[in-house]
Nucleic acid binder design. Sequence first.
RNA 1: GCGACUGUAGCUCAGUUGGUUAGAGUACUGGAUUGUGAUUCCAGGUGUCGUGGGUUCGAGUCCCAUCAGUCGCCCCA
Length: 419
Amino acid sequence: MLGSRIMAQSVKGMRDLFGAELRWFQHIEETARRVFERHGYSEIRTPILEELDVFKRSVGESSDIVNKEMYEFTDRGGRRVVMRPEATAGIVRAAIQHKLLASSDPVLFYCIGPQFRYERMQTGRYRQFWQIDAESLGVATPESEAESLLMLHSFLKELGLRHLVFSINSVGTPESRPAFHAAFRAFFAQRENLFCADCHRRVETNPLRVLDCKNETCQAALEGHPVITDHLDEASARHHLRLKELLMELGLPFEENPRLVRGLDYYTRTAFEVLSSDLGAQSALLGGGRYDGLVKQLGGPEVPGFGWAIGLDRLAIVLQQVRGKAPYAPPALLIPLGDRAATEALKLARSLWDAGVALQLETRGGALKKAMATANRTGVETVLILGDGELDGGTITVKHMATGEQEIWPLGEVAARLK
RNA sequence: GCGACUGUAGCUCAGUUGGUUAGAGUACUGGAUUGUGAUUCCAGGUGUCGUGGGUUCGAGUCCCAUCAGUCGCCCCA
């Protein structure tokens, strides 16, 4: 008894989803499935646990995720395993394992599920968080990126989000990046005293990361910095130009952000993000990009890929801000009065359920007043009352909670009229 | 990993330089209405004051630790 209070506590950063918030999650997931299937994507569900190397070789050994944020342990068989911190690596691993990339056919997958990162909690940031992920493997064209972004756009549009702007950039290729690094380091050296300690570290390990330092002084010091897109190889430059042309052609709202870089090492060429001001410091609502070297790095053929991930927890917060309550109304409530009606209500409910009608049954057997109060509180729109009078007449009393109006329906018409 | 703040009824919160028996609204239960919901009226439980120590004659209040939450840094979804 003393201990039970302490036990009834979820692990730090892990939460239970239910009620209004879960309604939003469900609505988001249903919308995602509908839109993605319409685009020819199919679902994949990969394991929570992956071999440590899957993430070391993809996300990058220098990244914070791999260095200090992974739930990593040795299982009973002595395997080094990790609870996935992101979805892409596992999906690519699966595609390789099942030889899905053997032909030149594109592989279009989406994946909805929890991810795990051991981090300090903040608004919209949990240690178990949920992502919706879409990956397009096997196509290198800007057209495939436009298609993916178009799908993302209709997904967000159907959720009721407006005024979202895609922020895009190109981070080049591993071959072309050294040219930019050299130019950037030269720029940095001229004014290195203006940058913070973190940036001095970053300029050595990953110069791109200096560009998105949150420090205002550093951002000011970056004025006039060399732009990555000026140092691209010719093919990457054409690719970038073509994508922008397509986005304009399609009327997709975007802005070029030469300081946009991504935290995962595997991105090549196109990188993009969508931010939201409703998320406090955790402004990133979604992000993604191209990863042409990843499949090979994970032991597969040389196959390109493009994908993105959106945070469900954060998306739910934004939707709550702009749309309020989740689009959900509980089904009609059937209230029996008296012992005879209690039996008949179960029979009636069964026939309605069998006919596909959504219905809740009041089984507490208390006063009508109490049942009505519950119905009112939980937002029930229609109440069906079944008492001796109704049973004798083969009817049922129907009350519409919003207006308070009541009417009498023949029992035989209930199924049809409720549908 | 670092910093700031918070923790009192199921929920939202009061609670005076430390002072007796811990409060309001809402929700809950019963009644005015034994077949009608936000309303009104009356009556009533609301609780180990996050947890464990310490200071004190005395701690919801002060100190320490710990757990949890919120918000930043870092990083990302």
